[in-house]
């Protein structure tokens, strides 16, 4: 246990350092974009965290999906741990996306939310599902039946992704609004690209660190639960 704890803390710390460095460089070193082409040229700097947040949340939702499928089919313990980790990190990074995206959208295009934008709406939906899972895990007694229901909700969230794709396509057909282009690589200044890459790497390291920490915490919680049950039995006897 000390190994994963130390590893988790180390990776998280390194990740945080990189993340802070990304923000610093984003403001102080990355050049300004063309004020003629952008409505809010300074606001573009949100991109240096917004895009890595989006990728981190994508990874988290992948963990959630894999875990939900694994628990749903075979009730594997590792599957459940992935559900817990995926939902917590999905909530953290998903919230970051749906907070920073509308702020940027509002500043640049005057549109905080576009019901026809597939990615934004998918992230919003999955974040809502992740919030449900995190809150429910805290309020419901742990057990197979609770886990079955929560895994089903997790899968429900993912089944909504293609439904959302259809719905947003149909909606956009009649409301061709602004498409929020968040990660256009072509034509990016090399300095901007470098800061973005630093952001990607830092968030990846941070993500792995947080996954490790989450796994460690879950293992400790299980061990504590086991010890407390033994103490309960001793108290009754």
């Amino acid at each position: 246990m000390p190994d994963t704890r130390t590893l988790g803390l180390t990776l998280t710390s390194c990740g945080l350092v990189g993340v802070i460095a990304t923000a610093y460089l984003g403001f102080s070193w990355a050049p300004l974009v063309d004020p003629e082409a952008w409505n809010a040229p300074e606001a573009y700097r949100i991109l240096f965290w917004h895009v890595p947040f989006a990728w981190a949340s994508f990874l988290a939702f992948c963990l959630l999906f894999i875990g939900a499928v694994s628990w749903y089919r075979k009730r594997t313990e590792w599957g459940w741990r992935l559900v817990v980790t995926g939902s917590e990190l999905g909530l953290l990074f998903g919230l970051g996306v749906v907070i920073s995206g509308p702020i940027w959208g509002s500043a640049e295009w005057g549109v905080p939310w576009d019901w026809g934008d597939l990615r934004l709406n998918t992230y919003g939906l999955l974040t809502a599902v992740a919030l449900f899972l995190v809150l429910s895990r805290r309020t419901q007694p742990d057990g197979d039946d609770t886990r079955d229901t929560l895994a089903a909700v997790g899968l429900f969230g993912f089944a909504l992704v293609p439904i959302t794709a259809l719905a947003t396509t149909w909606y956009q057909n009649r409301h061709p609004g602004i498409v929020l282009v968040e990660s256009e690589d072509t034509g990016l200044d090399p300095q901007i690209r470098m800061v973005l890459m630093l952001g990607f790497v830092s968030f990846l390291v941070l993500f792995v660190g947080l996954v490790t920490l989450s796994g460690t915490i879950q293992a400790l919680e299980e061990e504590l639960e086991g010890r407390q049950r033994m103490l309960d039995e001793g108290a009754i006897a």
Binding site: A23, F27, N39, A40, P41, E42, A43, W49, I99
Partner: peptide, 16 residues
């Protein structure tokens, strides 16, 4: 233009 929004966004995300 947009600096306020950028700062607000980073503040919120940092807090998170």
């Amino acid at each position: 233009t947009g600096m306020v929004e950028a700062v607000v966004a980073y503040t919120l995300l940092s807090s998170l």
